[in-house]
Structure formats: structure tokens, C-alpha cells
Design a protein around this nucleic acid. Structure first.
Lengths: 128, 128
DNA sequence: CAGAATCCATGTTGATACTG
DNA sequence: CAGTATCAACATGGATTCTG
């Protein structure tokens, strides 16, 4: 079976094993938000922290490390005092924006439909 | 700012709030795997359990409930003895396949690149 | 400024046993 | 067959404190 099949058949199991880690990163709480911000240009650590509302220092560090490890973000240290560290999307990071945007557009397009389904479900739940 | 902007600008904060729950479901361990299987046709509970390697009964139940609540999967009970329950994708569920496939294709296309980046990162880590 | 280290609350997943 | 209930293990996320 061809992994790069462009039909809408389900991904076979080997394919899923490859896709899972990506889905995992995409699905985590902060990574895609960071990618979205870096999509507009490089940022320093505290710039990101200020722009991404609610993220803790710890999670920003961890998420950036994860993105760097996956080759989606590059980290450039300028050893001045105080130190300066710039983060920016790699080419790979930029290429991820398109499929993620497709998903984001889907979400925005169907969010009302989803919320209504949830309301109906919850209503049925609470009544019995 | 228009939520449905089709540029590649970062999603604004309100947009992200809408996208987050979808990313959350897409990113969870089993939901998209279930969607992939159901994409080929409806299944009974234990058929899904057999086809999705490694999923526990509990997680299959929970994932299906989540998908049902979001309106992505429909659940049809036939009250025979033994009971029969069929799951299938709703129209909304089917519409999600395209953007998820885009992401899956991206993953498959770049998995080697990612793995190499991870190796390089881990190598740098371990040496210091 | 850019983090590392620590501790803790919470959420997620899985194994097991039981049920209509 | 298609679940529910319970418990334990682990992962995730956040607050706080400290450092070169």
C-alpha cells in the first residue's frame, strides 16, 4: 500500500505511527500557538511570553525545546550580557503552517455546528 | 479582524480559542484513528476494538463518547439480545477527514526530516 | 534576559473486574 | 455484546524560587 496515496482512504497502520507524533505536537496546548506567532517573524524568549497569553515560563521553554528538537524552530543565542536568544521558524516549521491552517479553517467553519452538537448531547445526558 | 481571513497570518486570540478544542481532539491518542477507520464504513464496538491495535475498552468508549458529543460520530443502538451498537461518521465527521489528511500527508512527507532533526538535537544534548 | 530546578494539582491512560 | 466502575500509573501544566 502506498503511504503517499492521495485518496481519502484511512491511513494504514504504519502511516498512523508516523502521523501520531505530529498530531501529538499539533494537539498540545501551546506549540501551535507559538508557531502562529513565530510565523510573523522571529521573537525573543520574553517577547513570546508576553504575546502568548497565559503561558508559563516553564511551558514556553518546554514547548520551544520540543519544537526545536523536531526541527520546526531554530534557536539562536547571542552571548551578550544580558543574553539574547532569538527563535524563528525553520523552513520545515513554515511548511507546517499550511496544513495546520487547513485544520484551523475547518474548526472556525464548523465551530457552531460542534457547539450545537455538544449542547444537544449534554441536554440528552442531563435528562437521561 | 476577520476570523475567516484566508491569509497565512497567525490566528488571532479569539480564533485560537475556537481552534483549541478541535486541535485537542485531533491531537488525542485515539480519536483520529477511530475517524480513519470509520471513514471506510460503520463499525460495531468490538469491530473497532479489534481493528484499532492497542486501544483499551475504556479509551474506545471514552473516545467514541467525545466524538459523538462533538457531532463527528453517530451512535445507533439496536436493542436486540445481545445488544448491537453501530458507529459511523456523520457528515461533519467526514468533512474533517480532508484537513486531517492534509496534516497526515505533511507528517508522512516530512517524517524523515523530523527524525533527523531529533537525532541531531539528541546528539548535541548528550555530548553537551 | 533567559532560563533551570523543584514541588504540586490535575488530567489522561490503562488494567481489572463486573453487568444488563 | 457493549459497556460501567474502580483504582493505580503516568503525563501534563502551573507556581515558585533561584541563577549566570
Amino acid at each position: 500500500m502506498d503511504v503517499t496515496s492521495d485518496t481519502l482512504e484511512p491511513l494504514h497502520l504504519a502511516g498512523c505511527a508516523n502521523v501520531a507524533p505530529v498530531l501529538n505536537r499539533v494537539g498540545d496546548k501551546w506549540s501551535m500557538l507559538i508557531v502562529m506567532v513565530l510565523a510573523t517573524g522571529s521573537r525573543r524568549f520574553n517577547e513570546l511570553k508576553r504575546e502568548i497569553d497565559g503561558i508559563s515560563q516553564r511551558m514556553l521553554t518546554r514547548s520551544l525545546r520540543g519544537l526545536e528538537r523536531d526541527g520546526l524552530v531554530s534557536r539562536t543565542v547571542t552571548p551578550t550580557i544580558p543574553p539574547r536568544v532569538d527563535y524563528e521558524l525553520t523552513e520545515l516549521g513554515h511548511s507546517l503552517r499550511l496544513p495546520v491552517k487547513a485544520l484551523g479553517d475547518w474548526a472556525i467553519e464548523h465551530i457552531d455546528c460542534i457547539r450545537e452538537a455538544q449542547k444537544r448531547y449534554d441536554a440528552r445526558e442531563s435528562e437521561g
